[in-house]
Structure formats: C-alpha cells, structure tokens
Design a protein around this nucleic acid. Structure first.
Lengths: 100, 100
DNA sequence: ACTTACCGTAAGCTATGACTTACATCCCTG
DNA sequence: CAGGGATGTAAGTCATAGCTTACGGTAAGT
C-alpha cells in the first residue's frame, strides 16, 4: 500500500494540462494561469501539488516564480510502470493456471 | 485536458495494491478480497474501475471471475510518460530562457 | 517611500469518490 | 429443482479534494 504522490498528482486533468504546457518550456505562474479557465490561486495550488510530488522544480526570478518539468520525478514513475508492465507480460502466460 | 482513466485509476492506493497483488498472477475476486481490510464489495468496485480503465482483464471461470493484469493498458500509460520524460529532458536545457 | 505587479495562503463551499450494509444474480452441486 | 457459494449492484454516509473570494507578503519601478 505504498504511497506514490506523483500518481496522485497526475490524476487531475488540470495538473496534466499544466505539465503539458510546461513541455513547451519553463514558465512563470502567472503565464501558466493565463491559459486556464480556473482562477490563478487554483493554478498556484496545483503547482504546489506538482512540486511536492517531485514533478516540478521552482526557481525564483525576481518577483516571478519559474516552474519547469523535473525529469527525475517522471523517471521514478516510469520505473514503477516498467516493473508493472514486466510482470504483466511475464507473470501471466496465456495458459497460466489462476491462483484461485 | 485529455482524460486518461488509467491515471485516475492508479491514484488510489487500494487499487495499486490490487495491481501489485495481481503481479503474482491472476486471481479471483474473492481471493483478492481476502488480503484487504476493506469489504468485498469495495474490492469489487475497485476491480470494476481498473477494468474500465483498461488495466485489467476479466474471464469467467464457472461462478468465479478471474482478474489478470492487462499489459496493453499499462503500455499505453508508459507511452504518455515517455513523451513527458523526453520533453522534460530535451525541452529544458540548463540555460534555456524562461518563456515569461 | 509609495505604488504596482506577481504570487502564495487562508477560509469556506461544493462536488466527487471511497466505504459499508443490504439485496439481486448467476452457477454449480446434490 | 432446491440450496449454497461466489460476485456484482444499489442506496446511503462520510471524508477528501478542487474551486472561489479575500488577504498578506515580497520585489521592482518611479
């Protein structure tokens, strides 16, 4: 029952949209909020969740706060999925007898 | 703002625990429920979510219903994460100027 | 120093989702 | 065909999470 904050963070469509926006390159909080229907504080809260989940990095640049994708966080998730994929392919041969 | 049911499904710890249990091999609903504190109907509901998300396959075996991991569903997710990882590494060179 | 812009935080509301109990359904067995 | 086991479904309750408005704080410019 391991807790994986990155998966929790990726569950929300708005947060995924933020990540997609950041694939174009780093951006400030205000700039990010412009493309979304939800309020700026809502975007700020989502950014906070993404940072806490290890999916984003922040760097202060004057009064602005620049957000950018954090590759390490995403690669950790890939590790989890890769292991799951591996066992899904290997652990379930077409004629394997069910364990119940 | 694309909707990805698999990510929604993976957000819940109990569902991830079910997937982890199924890495050992296919199992019936009742057998799966035995290892969990939550009630059997709760497990049944979680299994339904996982099936609808494309992460599990079901096959009736008499009165039992056998659940097993569905590699295709997991690989689709990997595709999403791979693209994100790629852009995170390439699209954010250490000295790239912020787009705001 | 005052003003303005940018941003995060707090408080409150509402919707979504996870859980439980009770019930309906299907399949095998005697 | 009646009985029992295995499982999904329905209705209702409660916690969590996302949204909004209002506010506080910091940095830059004049």
């Amino acid at each position: 029952m391991t807790y994986i904050p990155a998966l929790q963070a990726l569950a929300d469509p708005t947060r995924r949209a933020l990540l997609d926006r950041l694939r174009l390159g780093p951006a400030s909080a205000g700039r990010l909020a412009q493309g979304f229907r939800v309020s700026r504080p809502a975007v700020s809260q989502h950014l906070r969740v993404l940072v806490c989940a290890g999916l984003l990095d922040v760097s202060a640049c004057g009064a602005r706060r620049i957000y950018r994708l954090r590759p390490e966080g995403l690669e950790a998730l890939r590790g989890y999925l890769d292991a799951l994929c591996h066992d899904a392919r290997m652990g379930t041969p077409p004629d394997a007898p069910p364990s119940a």
